[in-house]
């Protein structure tokens, strides 16, 4: 099916696993909170957003800016703040990761809120991060936005 990236994930995670996940989250936070100001969505898409956390957007948009970015690149809701997607675009350009912005991020699974994103990648609940973008072939793979499992 063409629009497969909107399908639901696996059933809710068990209490045991969630506890373990919260334990891992402590270590993850030591890195992610100071550097990226992680919002604990549990489905990390940092690698497709130029390593700027898109969840800091007031609307928590995962697929690009809303139509309200101000002419100076600031947010429509908080004029003193940068539009987070403006920053994502600038940073992606800087790192040469523009092609990754074409990836459509799936509907957020709220079951994964406040769980360890690293464990979720390991358990194949979300996509593995793309750390290096070397050539066009890498980008072509992104067109296939089906789940990996």
């Amino acid at each position: 099916m063409e629009s497969d990236f909107v399908t639901y994930d696996k059933p809710p995670i068990s209490y045991r696993e969630r506890r373990f996940s919260r334990f891992l989250l402590f270590f993850e936070d030591l890195i992610k909170v100071p550097i990226f100001r992680c919002q604990h969505c549990g489905e990390c898409i940092l690698s497709s957003t130029g390593f700027v956390c898109s969840q800091r957007c007031p609307k928590r948009l995962r697929n690009g800016p809303c139509g309200g970015t101000r002419a100076d690149g600031h947010c429509e809701v908080y004029p003193e703040r940068w539009c987070i997607w403006y920053k994502i675009y600038m940073r992606s350009k800087f790192w040469g990761r523009i092609k990754l912005l074409y990836k459509i991020n799936r509907i957020h699974n709220w079951n994964l809120e406040r769980t360890s994103a690293w464990l979720n990648v390991f358990k194949k609940r979300n996509d593995a991060p793309v750390l290096f973008v070397c050539n066009d072939k890498e980008a072509e793979k992104l067109d296939d936005f089906k789940r990996q499992d």
């Binding site: 099916m1 609307k59 948009l61 697929n63 991020n105």
Partner: peptide, 20 residues
């Protein structure tokens, strides 16, 4: 409280899925 459960791109995909 704003919901913003989906964003517009995902909403389009949702309608496309309903269509299918």
């Amino acid at each position: 409280k704003g919901v913003f459960d989906l964003d517009s791109t995902q909403l389009i995909a949702t309608v496309a899925k309903l269509n299918s």
